[in-house]
Amino acid sequence: MEIFLQQIINGLVQGSVYALVALGYTMVYGILGLINFAHGEVVMMGAMVSLSALSLMAGLPPLVSLPLSLLLAVAFCMLLGYGIERIAYRPLRHAPRLAPLITAIGVSIVLQNLAMLIWGRDYHSFPQLFANHAHRMAGAIINDIQLAIVVAAFLMMAGLMLVVHRTRLGRAMRAVAENQHAAQLMGVDVNRVVSVTFMMGSALAAVAGVMVSANYGLAHYYMGFLLGLKAFTAAVLGGIGNLRGAMLGGLLLGLIESLGAGYIGDITGGFMGSQYQDVFAFLVLIAVLIFRPSGLLGERLAERA
């Protein structure tokens, strides 16, 4: 029972991160109908930039340096997201579907290898800035960082929902998602909306990047790939294009992964261990695509021409 609760907590923490990243995928998909393959690398860039900023500000008190470096990472990633869209996607908006997919792969490779050139192939450890207290809850443990991740993620998601549903900008975003052409005729600046969407998604990605590296204490040039793949799975699980779906999908995937990795040994009689954790996301993806391609909260996708 204690193990079970512990896995639930771990799953929730991991799932909050997935949810934040999945939101980036789903927002872009909702508006452009495009899978932004490079999104995982934006997460990685966020982690790396914040790490470098932290080490530059090593002398400052953590209460100053942490928010500052976070802000820097967010600003950098927003700029990056804006640039990616302008360079790699916008010129191809009316090209065959394959074209933006291929440039997206290109961007992803470039970012990954740039990161490797800048930060090297080694794992970088994330400095411990605060005492990380562990709290006991019915036998399971949750520490300060994990608590902060879950709280921050939920706050950001709530904020995003407010922006999308309560502001002029959000209305424009929903209008473009519904019908780009009609929105344009109504005077919505589609290009601006798309740029803002990329920037918002990238900001969330930057925060997620900092969260992951703080949680594991590590950052690495390759960390974006698998994280991106899983967050995308989360977006599909919830119903791609649907914001609530991305959050739900993220949390669910985190739980599935954590419980799966915790119990796979028991299930397979010791044949497979937790090193197969990464397989679960993929199995979930395949299962969703077979049984409910529209995801939990999504509309039917296959029929949309």
């Binding site: 579907r97 997919l101 793949l229 995308f232 799975t233 599909v236 993929f282 695509l289 391609p293």
Partner: peptide, 24 residues
């Protein structure tokens, strides 16, 4: 079989994942 009836982007992601799974 499960992916090809859907839009092309899904195939890209599923094959990406498959490549990784095989390696695992």
């Amino acid at each position: 079989a499960p992916t090809l009836k859907l839009r092309g982007d899904y195939l890209a992601i599923v094959t990406l994942g498959f490549g990784e799974i095989i390696r695992i």
